[in-house]
């Protein structure tokens, strides 16, 4: 959903706030999630994320969401899967080196990040992907991480 993805960047500040709400709700429900069991929640949550984030952000389900550091633009839409900023091949009109009709994902990410409160996130070096987490729920992963699992 390319159009929605562009809108997400345009309304990055709103998306950031909405995400803040989702995050607060998730943390509030954490004790319940723990009682049900993270493992049992993994698949239904992944399904919810796949539909919602897929629709709004063209989410590729890498399982390690960094939208709030990347201007609410999913960097996994970059043909080179760059999570740390644009490559040197961006065309003068802002087009992608490999898919000239698509605007570089990082052009959107940069614009979006300037509209957000978290302006510094885009400058933070991101670690390499854990390739075992493809297709899994990023939100459950986030809760697990917070619990130090």
């Amino acid at each position: 959903m390319y159009v929605l993805r562009l809108a997400a960047t345009r309304f990055a500040a709103f998306c950031e706030a909405a995400y803040g709400v989702v995050e607060a709700v998730m943390h509030g429900l954490e004790p319940l999630a723990r009682r049900v069991g993270y493992d049992r929640l993994e698949r239904p949550m992944a399904a919810v994320e796949s539909v919602t984030k897929g629709l709004i952000f063209d989410c590729r389900m890498c399982g390690q969401c960094i939208l709030s550091d990347t201007g609410m633009t999913c960097p996994m839409n970059c043909p080179k899967k760059m999570r740390n900023g644009p490559c040197g091949g961006v065309r003068q009109d802002g087009g992608c080196e490999l898919a000239p009709t698509m605007r570089c994902v990082w052009m959107e990410a940069w614009t979006g990040s300037r509209r957000m409160r978290n302006k510094a996130g885009i400058a933070k070096p991101q670690p390499p992907l854990d390739n075992r987490r493809w297709g899994r729920s990023a939100w459950i992963g986030h809760l697990r991480e917070r619990r130090g699992e």
């Binding site: 040197g88 065309r91 003068q92 802002g94 990082w106 940069w110 400058a123 933070k124």
Partner: peptide, 20 residues
Amino acid sequence: NPFAPPLDFRPMRLAKKIAA
């Protein structure tokens, strides 16, 4: 690449590489 867009992000991107 100081000559490729987004031009105003490029110095920050260099800073990121230095941090790395």
